[in-house]
Computed example of a mutant assay.
Amino acid sequence: MDHTEMRAEDNASTVTQFILLDFSDLPNLQGFLFVMFFLVYLIILIGNSFIIVITRLDQALQRPMYFFLAKFSSLEICYVSVTLPRILFNIGTQNRSISELACATQTCFFLMLGATECFLLAVMFYDCYVAICNPLHYPLIMNPMKCTQLAAGSWLSGIPVQIGQTYQIFSLHFCNYNQINHFFCDLPPILKLACGDTFINELSVYLVAILFAAVPFMLILASYSKIIGTILKVPTATGRAKAFSTCSSHLLVVVLFFGSATVTYLRPKSTHSPGTDKLLSLFYTIVTPMFNPLIYSLRNRDMIAALRKLLFKI
C-alpha cells in the first residue's frame, strides 16, 4: 500500500489517520511473522485460560495467591488482545492505516491495562510478602474481602489518569508525518509526530511512568530483601526451596515486565530509536505474557498437581 508521508501546510493542520509501519521493513518475512504472532497469541490465550479454569475448579487452589493469579491471567488476555489482533490484521492484509480515534482508543486501553498490570503485580508480591514474613496473621490480613478490594483497586486506579494522559497526547497537532514507526500506538513514537513544544507532554509521560512503573518496581525490589532474610531463617531446606520457588517466579515476571517498560518510558525522547523501541516493547507487550503461564505453572507444584488432576478427569 501507499506509505506516502502526510506533511502539513501550517501548524493548524493535523492528521486524521496514521500508518503503523510495524514490521514493513521486513517484506520477505511477512508470512513468517504472521504465523509466529498467531502462534504466540494462541499460546497466550490457551495458557492463561488454563490457569483461570484450574484455579476455579481445584479446591486446593482456593487461596489468595491463586485468586490473584486468575485475575492476572484474565488481565493478560485482555492486555495482549489490545495489540496482537491489530498486528495480525496489519500483516495479513498489508493495510496498515489506522484512524486517529482507533489509535487513541488502542493507546488508552493499552495504558489502562498496563497500569493495572503494574499494580496487580505489586499486589501479588505483597501477598507473597505477607505469606512469608507474617504467616500467623496471613489469613486475617489477606481475607476474601481484602483480596477483592486489592484486585478491584488494581483494575480501577489507573483508569482516570490514563484516560487523561491519552486525551492530552491526542489533543496535540500531528502536522509533520502520519507514519508511526511501531507495531502499535505507543506514546513515545506518537510524541515524535507532534509538532511544537511537547516538553509538558513528555514530562507527564515520565511522571506517570514513575508513579505506575518505577515506584512499584522499586518497592517490590526493596521488600524482596526482607523476604530473602525471612526465607533464610526457615529451618528446613524443603521450606526454603518452596518459598524461594514461589517468590522467584514473581520476581522473574516483575523484572521482565517492569524492566523493559521502565526503560522505554523513562528514556529521553532524543534517545528513542524505532528498532530499540520495538524490541523493548515486544518484551512487555508479548514476550512476558507468553511466558507468564509457563513461569507460574511449571515452577509451582500445586499448579502442576491441579493440572494433572484436570487432565486425568478429561
Rank of each mutant, 00 (worst) to 15 (best):
C175H: 06
R308W: 12
L187I: 15
A243C: 14
L280G: 06
I314E: 07
I295Y: 04
E202A: 11
H3R: 01
N300D: 15
K233G: 01
P216T: 00
C103R: 07
A209F: 06
Y284E: 05
Q179R: 08
K233R: 15
I295T: 03
K146G: 02
G239D: 04
S273T: 11
Q179H: 03
T166S: 12
F67C: 09
I210K: 10
N134M: 08
G31A: 13
F38P: 00
F291K: 02
S73P: 03
L57S: 12
N176R: 10
L310W: 15
A152P: 04
V253M: 08
S99C: 07
S223R: 14
K226C: 05
K233C: 09
F37L: 14
F68M: 09
E117S: 09
V82K: 02
T246I: 13
I163E: 10
P216C: 02
G153Y: 14
A12L: 14
I43H: 05
K313Y: 11
N178E: 05
V161S: 13
I231S: 11
L121G: 00
V80L: 13
S171Y: 05
P85M: 07
H272E: 12
L29I: 02
I169Y: 15
C247I: 06
F258G: 04
A209H: 08
L21I: 07
C128R: 15
Q30P: 01
R308A: 15
P274Y: 12
L33I: 11
F34M: 06
A243N: 11
C175L: 04
V15T: 15
I98P: 01
S273D: 11
